[in-house]
């Protein structure tokens, strides 16, 4: 599973951080960043919920 965050799309809503705080944070520039190198399979529901919560669809879950 590969996760991408498009920094051009991200507007810093932070809904992903509120949905999955163990996986996402906001950097100093207000752009979402993935906190882990690899998302485990047991975190799939969390990361998919975070992607679904993004108002601008900046987070994409591949695979």
């Amino acid at each position: 599973m590969e996760i991408t965050v498009d920094p051009d799309k991200c507007c810093g809503y932070g809904d992903c951080v509120l949905t999955a705080p163990e996986l996402f944070d906001l950097g100093g520039d207000g752009v979402a960043v993935l906190l882990v190198e690899e998302v485990r399979e047991d975190q799939r529901a969390d990361v998919e919920a975070a992607a679904a919560s993004c108002p601008v669809a900046a987070i994409v879950v591949h695979g």
Partner: peptide, 12 residues
């Protein structure tokens, strides 16, 4: 201002 993360809970 320069505190994007701190704003988060207040929107909710």
């Amino acid at each position: 201002v320069n505190a994007p993360k701190l704003l988060l809970p207040y929107r909710r």
